[in-house]
């Protein structure tokens, strides 16, 4: 996470089938990249999240420059969520109205994220911002999910019925104006917090290369009280659209989208997602959430440890106009 310099990739001596990335300007092991796509696709299909929070740091570990990794992962997330969106669409589990309101914030957030990404890259603090965001974001989301899922599992063990929806409870934002009724989600809520959530997801997605599903789904379920399946379906739609926009904007603004890397990841991703979805359906919902929580926390802790341990070399080098 923390090194901006190009590390030695999985070198030619180890690679049997290597593929040259024209934008990252280095050869990588084809099977490593396909494997990453499959593994993250599996997790994506299993939990209904994009998996960008895993993919971006893993790519950087294989030697891909962070600027290329962050800009190329969104198209992979888009491909993964495209097939998911279609299958939820067929089951009528996508709330278009809610999706559109989320998108209004998401589009602005994505544009802002791409812009801030460029500013931070020029200032040399991109890797710090990405690492800190990871630690804070994954730490918070992971801990919340962990407590919630452990509670749910304990409740299930005591034989109590699962509490997914608590109608009648009112949070502070239910008093806000501009109220809209979202029929499919069976909620009546102000457009303002929905737009804000969309903005946050779009912004972070573009800035740190995460799809945003792992934040959006809990936000929709726990804050907005949207039914879980509709939350996943709607989240997939939003992740799809914001990531498509992020891909185009990164290509225009930062010129660091590597189409060869992206396509290789997509191929692995869509295959992995199919197996992941099957594995996910065989598990109980709260166990699934517990696993996801542990995964999110583990990535957050790993990035955090990197931030506080003394780097092997305090110096790092980055070409200022590699993509001229």
């Amino acid at each position: 996470m923390r090194r901006l310099e190009r590390r030695r990739p999985f070198g030619p001596e180890r690679a049997h089938v290597s593929i040259y990335l024209p934008i990252a300007e280095l050869p990588v092991n084809l099977f490593v990249i396909l494997g990453l796509g499959i593994a993250v696709g599996f997790i994506s299909g299993m939990f209904g999240v994009g998996g960008g929070f895993l993919m971006t740091p893993l790519l950087i570990l294989t030697g891909v420059p962070p600027a290329v990794a962050v800009a190329s992962v969104p198209s992979n997330m888009a491909a993964n969520s495209m097939s998911g969106t279609i299958s939820y669409w067929r089951k009528r589990l996508v709330d278009i109205a809610l999706g559109l309101v989320l998108l209004s914030g998401g589009v602005v957030g994505t544009a802002a994220g791409v812009w801030v990404f460029g500013v931070l890259r020029r200032a040399g603090q991109l890797d710090l911002a990405v690492s800190l965001s990871y630690v804070v974001l994954l730490g918070i989301v992971g801990s919340l999910m962990l407590t919630e899922s452990v509670r749910a599992i304990l409740r299930a063990q005591r034989g109590e019925p699962p509490v997914v929806r608590r109608p009648g409870t009112h949070a502070w934002f239910h008093g806000l104006p501009l109220k809209l009724r979202f029929r499919q989600s069976r909620i009546y809520v102000s457009a303002m917090p929905v737009t804000a959530i969309g903005f946050a997801v779009g912004f972070l997605g573009a800035l740190i290369g995460v799809g945003g599903g792992f934040m959006l789904i809990p936000a929709l379920i726990y804050l907005m009280r949207v039914p879980t399946t509709v939350a996943i379906g709607t989240s997939l739609l939003l992740v799809l659209v914001t990531n498509l926009i992020a891909t185009v904007l990164h290509a225009v603004e930062n010129r660091t989208v590597d189409a060869v890397l992206a396509f290789t990841l997509m191929i692995g991703g869509v295959v992995g997602a199919q197996f992941g979805a099957r594995a996910g359906q065989a598990m109980r919902a709260e166990q699934l959430r517990l696993l996801l929580a542990l995964l999110v926390l583990a990535v957050g802790v790993r990035v955090g440890v990197d931030l506080i341990t003394r780097p092997a070399d305090p110096f790092s080098v980055v070409a200022t106009e590699t993509f001229q």
């Binding site: 491909a79 998911g84 891909t247 185009v248 869509v270």
Partner: peptide, 21 residues
Amino acid sequence: QRLAYGLLTALLALLTGLFAS
């Protein structure tokens, strides 16, 4: 051809997802 390149990559993602489904 930044814009065209970005749009093409996005289209590639859509088609890959569609194809998979």
